[in-house]
Design a protein around this nucleic acid. Structure first.
Lengths: 145, 145
DNA sequence: TGGTAATAGTTGATTTTGTAACTAACAAGG
DNA sequence: CCTTGTTAGTTACAAAATCAACTATTACCA
């Protein structure tokens, strides 16, 4: 017996978003996990380097809104696996430029191809007009525009 | 230098969903955290009991897709705080019925009221037609319909 | 019956995360 | 130069999530 029938979790946006996000990443998560033993943050860092090329840890953190300690640890792991190389900047020896190795690039290419087809399969479940609206609202909520 | 310019993380649905979900729960998270010292899972369990009334841990886990160990520990904490009471079923002594105490109900009422206005504020940023589409797609992705 | 499997829920060991404090390098004003 | 403040990134310790193994109870069936 509900105390307040006018409220339903399933209409609560943060709840809906969380459920959809979990459901939506589930399938792809197993790919980068089982195929390359990557964690979610590690995959995210890999993708940013694959897409935007050379970046610093801080830049990645700012762009993806990941805390610097999380980025730091992800970079460490990716470096251990020889997916990422670090090089100190000459002009400012605090900053470290990160870029993918050949192995990292190859993992990125493989995963991004899978990501694209995964994404296409997800989007195929809706009509194009709905996807347009959906993504626009998402981007706005995610503060990406 | 990007290897594959046709791909952008910001168009990748799982990524977008995650960012939006994190952004969207951020504000409300501080409410249940600072006001009642609740964790995300604890809040979710509280809400389910507030809305659907008496339930078992397994039912909550199934409906919200939370792992049973997470539910178990959340119920323990909520029970410690006297927000939830447990009672063994007579017909099957493995199952435990959970329901809110008066204190739990009051916390739920308080939080659900805040949740509703928080939700309304989020939704006010878009036109109604967009919200309708958005929620429909979300529900489908979250496999809630 | 008795044996095997299934279900509800808990506990313990290991990983991962979060918070704060830390080192190192730079910047700017006196 | 020195003090103070800021920025890049790491590390230490506590909190939380995860995974597997566990107890207790019921269900199935030969």
């Amino acid at each position: 017996m509900s105390k307040d029938d006018s409220f339903d979790v399933q209409d609560f946006l943060p709840y809906l978003l969380n459920q959809a996000a979990e459901e939506g990443s589930l399938g792809f998560q197993t790919v980068y996990k089982e195929r390359y033993g990557l964690l979610r943050t590690e995959w995210r860092v890999l993708f940013h380097l694959g897409i935007y090329g050379q970046m610093t840890a801080t830049e990645i953190g700012t762009r993806a809104r990941i805390h610097k300690t999380k980025v730091s640890r992800a970079v460490q792991k990716l470096n251990d696996r020889r997916f990422v190389e670090r090089s100190r900047s000459d002009s400012d020896r605090r900053v470290e430029w990160l870029h993918l190795t050949a192995a990292g690039m190859s993992a990125y290419n493989d995963l991004s191809a899978i990501a694209q087809s995964y994404d296409a399969a997800l989007q195929a479940r809706f009509c194009e007009a709905d996807i347009v609206v959906f993504k626009r609202v998402l981007r706005h909520l995610a503060r990406l525009d």
